[in-house]
């Protein structure tokens, strides 16, 4: 079989291989272009409490219910106040744990007496819906030790975070996996001591 005959027989194959080659080159070049702009490490969604305006959408926009955003208590920043702006409703007179006094709609903050006049507040993660009401209260009156954060044991790491899409303050972004939490006015490194 000479060369020209061979080509004649396999015309369709020839077209196919040419197209395949061009697809291959296209796919390869897309990969090549993008490879220069990748991150080796993984990234995860996190919100910046400094930008957060406590609009309450973290509670409603997440694909999970309850949301993967939780209030996280940065104990190092807490003043252990008796009158906690994050725990009590603004007009509360008796500082008791009665339900009508509490700001939290799901009773997710526990208040325990430590010593006079200090109280410790603890977030019960299973109950927290990430509405940010306590965060707003603590930030307005207290130290701002209650902060909203994406809890990475719950977050399913969607390709596009649906809260990020709805966040009015543009507070969500992808962070390197080595530093998955951002606390306002406090770095998590100190926490590990």
């Amino acid at each position: 079989m000479n060369k020209s005959e061979k080509r004649k027989i396999n015309r369709r194959d020839f077209v196919n291989s040419t197209l395949r080659l061009s697809f291959g080159i296209a796919i390869g070049s897309i990969g090549g272009i993008l490879l220069s702009n990748t991150i080796k490490s993984k990234t995860v969604w996190q919100l910046d409490p400094a930008k957060c305006v406590q609009c309450g959408r973290c509670a409603t926009s997440c694909v999970l219910s309850p949301s993967a955003v939780k209030c996280i208590h940065v104990y190092d920043m807490c003043g252990y106040c008796d009158l906690c702006g994050g725990y009590f409703k603004p007009e509360t007179k008796d500082l008791t744990t009665a339900a009508e006094n509490q700001l939290c709609p799901t009773n997710a903050i526990s208040r325990t007496f430590i010593e006079d006049p200090f109280f410790e507040y603890h977030i019960i993660e299973e109950l927290c819906i990430g509405c940010g009401k306590c965060v707003e209260g603590c930030g307005a009156f207290g130290n701002g030790s209650l902060q909203l954060q994406v809890s990475h044991n719950i977050c399913v790491d969607c390709n596009q975070c649906s809260i990020a899409r709805d966040c009015p303050a543009d507070a969500f972004s992808r962070m390197a996996i080595e530093e998955p939490y951002t606390f306002k006015g406090f770095s998590s490194d100190d926490d590990e001591v």
């Binding site: 003043g79 106040c81 010593e115 990475h152 939490y181």
Partner: peptide, 26 residues
């Protein structure tokens, strides 16, 4: 500094650590 400084506990209360569960590993 913070508006209400963190108290020095006399009763020897140890402060819990801030929870920050780590994400799924790379």
């Amino acid at each position: 500094g913070p508006r209400f400084p963190k108290p020095e506990f006399e009763s020897g209360h140890s402060q819990p650590t801030t929870q920050s569960p780590s994400p799924r590993g790379i």
